[in-house]
Design a binder for these strands. Structure first.
Lengths: 331, 331
DNA sequence: CTGAAAGCGCTAACAA
DNA sequence: TTGTTAGCGCTTTCAG
């Protein structure tokens, strides 16, 4: 008897399998003494309910999948950590999928998992809206760092956050800024650009966009050179990785940061206060975002609390001032 | 018909369920034309095999769990990335568990998953040997950054790596080094210390150990102060996080790195070449380690290739020379 | 409160 | 080559 089943427990305890089942799933509906006896026998035999058998019947797997667009970006660690914590707290299993920035991989992996998980948390999904809707029709979905009408989502408040960025730069005397855009299919990239432009318009400063760039350190070189051609005094990079690459390239070219050019990033990743100069960046409670997303998902998957209008959580962002931004150079 | 089953396909296609089953699992054993017909019908209906039903019967879940002792350490993300890639390549699902440095959580989570995954990859497990053996008796296990007789494992070559560290320091004139130890229940911590001490003995220099320390940036302060009391000219920290904290604390105290004290870390995490001074550290092909561990595990879980003696992969480590080490100060 | 029995979706003998 | 049938381990009516 390699792994004991409910039958073994029932036989040893001298009860029916249904009683054993009830002792575990609906403890209220069984006599206290028999329940204790059953549980004792089960413990002795080392019995553990088989989750697959359970899932087969109930259709609920106690499992959620988290799909991230690019696991090499340290930013996602925070999201993953929050998601893992929340899942564990409810005894849910977290499946991790790396889409490697490929919509194709993302879609295929989701379809592969559709019948084995209770729902999906998609971090910075690169899928087109139609695909998201189609997936949401099969299983509950919660978006992180992306919004779509009809789907629950958790995002940082970029309108307010980008406003903070622009106000900070304006207060330092900057009048021209350039946004180094992220991938074309990134919702955040459009979001950040439109929020930045709005804030810039409001405050009467000039904003332009160049790119798109793959948001990695290695792309920072090209991005920096591109930024320099615009003549802007402040560079807002799509994320911290790109910003770090930009700062490195500027140093290499002898352009001083922040004396000649200010640089701002997004995400406040671990490394951003270790690099030189340290990075001014828009941060936020990322672990909390991950946690909230899974919580929303568990809400949706539970039979009860599903049918309200999908909540859209907007979490406050906060600009972290560090060494990469400073007063505009006198000319 | 929310989600079509094998019965629906069979009914529409006008064949028996077993034929549908065979069309998917053993395509060779069914007439080519019927198979195509079945597959066409299945595609039309949007049928997808239910993995739980399959697992219930076969006992194989196409799922592996990766347990990391502390997900906040960026080092593990390399391992996770490698593991995810390898799992995906074989259409395996990767379950991620964060043990939060707690053997208790680690054990409980593993037991919770024991009947839903095909095996475990344990990264830097904090469990005592007996527990590991007991788990391995239930499911295939592969260790990363840890070794145990009888279990397959993948580790960096710390004997050779620590030798490189000591040779590097000796060549710079250092004669006294101190190791800032990691957690007491960390196999790596003992490993690193014994390898360092052996190398130091061989090369005729003095090595001592202080600690243990929780290997986080925030613990670097206490660790640095502890190191200073020893009078050693070179500090070898348990990992890069601790090393970064040490460097920060030394800067704060006005101790120049590397002019007065040299600092070496382990892991070569993302931030270690961004901080100031950049960190000399023992790196290695971490993604490859993650990949290899899952590969070993898949090997073991496959019915065929399981019964050889458990392989112990030892992957070459490489010392990355950066700014935190230099010639010993003249006195 | 407890037991008997019918499936959940699929696969694997065993027949045909 | 294909169909029939008996389960995998568990939950859930339905009786008792």
């Amino acid at each position: 008897m390699p792994v004991p089943t409910i039958y073994d427990v029932a036989a040893v305890a001298g009860v029916a399998t249904s009683t054993v089942s009830r002792a575990f799933s609906t403890p209220g509906r069984v006599n206290a003494s028999t329940r204790e006896h059953v549980l004792a026998v089960a413990a002795e035999l080392g019995y553990r309910p088989n989750p697959h058998a359970r899932a087969l019947l109930s259709g609920r797997h106690h499992t959620v999948a988290m799909v991230v667009s690019d696991i090499t970006n340290p930013h996602y660690f925070e999201l993953i950590r929050g998601a893992e914590l929340r899942a564990k707290a409810s005894e849910y299993t977290l499946v991790l999928v790396n889409a490697e920035e490929s919509p194709r991989i993302e879609y295929d992996q989701i379809q592969r998992l559709v019948s084995s998980v209770d729902g999906f948390v998609l971090a910075a999904s690169r899928l087109p809206d139609e695909n998201l809707e189609q997936i949401a029709a099969q299983r509950p979905v919660v978006l992180m760092n992306r919004e779509l009408t009809g789907l629950p989502s958790v995002v940082l408040d970029h309108v307010q956050g980008c406003r903070q960025i622009v106000e900070h730069l304006v207060s330092l005397g900057h009048r021209r800024l350039v946004y180094l855009a992220g991938p074309r299919n990134s919702w955040m990239a459009s979001m950040r650009w439109s929020a930045l432009r709005t804030a810039a318009d409001d405050l009467g400063v000039d904003a332009q966009r160049v790119g798109p760039f793959t948001p990695k350190v290695t792309q920072g070189g090209a991005a920096a050179d591109s930024a320099l051609t615009t003549g802007a005094s402040a560079v807002v990079a799509h994320n911290d990785l790109l910003a770090i690459g930009v700062v490195q390239r500027l140093a290499q070219r002898g352009v001083r940061v922040p004396e000649e050019v200010s640089v701002v990033g997004f995400d406040d990743i671990f490394a951003s206060d270790l690099c030189t100069p340290s990075l001014t960046t828009l941060g936020g409670p990322h672990v909390e975002v991950g946690r909230a997303a899974v919580e929303l998902l568990l809400d949706r998957t539970s039979p009860s609390g599903s049918r309200r209008t999908p909540p859209r959580l907007v979490v406050p962002a906060g600009l972290v001032l560090r060494g990469s931004t400073g007063p505009v150079a006198p000319r």
